[in-house]
């Protein structure tokens, strides 16, 4: 019993130490933003590897999620003779929840893990240390551009995911199952609000982009510099990001839509 408590205490101490290190890391990282903005070519390179390389995964997934929503939604709604509401159903679920959450989960798996592995290996092969000895701050030079790239990319990828999803729902619902095209769009436009729905979705994706990039880069930077350490850190990135996304999504949803 005492052992268990000791373990718990130890775990707590480690967690706090890690939280402290990661906050310090975030502060350092944010201080590098101006340096990166002066040299946008650093950012461009990272936007390529973080954003462009995730593009296909995200759009294809968005298309399929939209198509499945169209199909399932149609069967459920047509039972109540309400298949004109298909557009509303597809768009609401995508813009409010599925878009931000699924895109963020995919992004954590695709780009987050890659960031952790890259930074972790740079640490393991003494590249970060070497850079420090060349009087170059690795956080400003290596970490901050990747952070900004993640932070910028995810909202754009989420918008793509949701848009392609709505088109996918249209493809199945309107082109294949014969829902009226006019009511697909008009009912959607009538029930979705720019601020309440679209903007809140975008805010969610901005928060997720911030958190995933932070977790991924910190796990890489904090990794034990061995192959095993890097592989554990990569796993932690995906797991912790997933928990963070789902937890934050609940909190944000409650704040945004639970106004009554």
């Amino acid at each position: 019993m005492i052992d268990l408590l000791t373990q718990l205490g130890k775990k707590t101490r480690y967690s706090f130490a890690k939280l402290g290190r990661s906050s310090f890391f975030l502060q350092q990282l944010l201080m590098g933003i101006t340096d990166v903005l002066v040299r946008p070519q650093l950012l461009s390179k990272q936007l390529y590897s973080v954003g462009v390389l995730s593009f296909f995964l995200i759009t294809i997934s968005g298309l399929f999620v939209g198509m499945v929503l169209g199909l399932q939604g149609y069967y459920i709604l047509s039972n109540f003779g309400a298949d004109e509401a298909l557009g509303v159903m597809v768009a609401t679920s995508l813009v409010r929840e599925l878009g931000p959450v699924v895109a963020a989960l995919l992004f954590a798996g695709r780009a987050g893990s890659a960031l952790t592995a890259e930074i972790g290996l740079m640490k393991a092969t003494e590249q970060l240390s070497g850079m420090e000895m060349m009087a170059i701050d690795p956080i400003k030079r290596i970490v901050t551009p990747r952070f900004l790239a993640g932070f910028i990319s995810l909202p754009l990828l989420t918008a793509l995911f949701s848009s392609v999803g709505v088109l996918g729902g249209h493809l199945i619902g309107v082109s294949l199952l014969g829902v009226d095209e006019g009511s697909y769009w008009s009912q959607m436009q009538a029930s979705l609000d720019v601020y309440d729905d679209i903007l809140n979705g975008v805010i969610k994706s901005i928060v997720f982009g911030f958190v995933i990039s932070w977790i991924a880069l910190f796990e890489g930077y904090d990794a034990i510099p061995t192959s095993e350490g890097v592989s554990c850190a990569t796993t932690r990135t995906v797991v912790n990001s997933a928990f963070a996304i789902l937890g934050l999504d609940f909190i944000l949803t409650a704040l945004m839509f639970g106004d009554i």
Binding site: T125, E126, Q127, S129, G130, M131, M133, M134
Partner: peptide
């Protein structure tokens, strides 16, 4: 540090 070079065991090339 700009005036101190260091050669790491692995080379630490980028």
């Amino acid at each position: 540090r700009k005036r101190m070079g260091m050669l790491f065991q692995s080379g630490a090339l980028l």
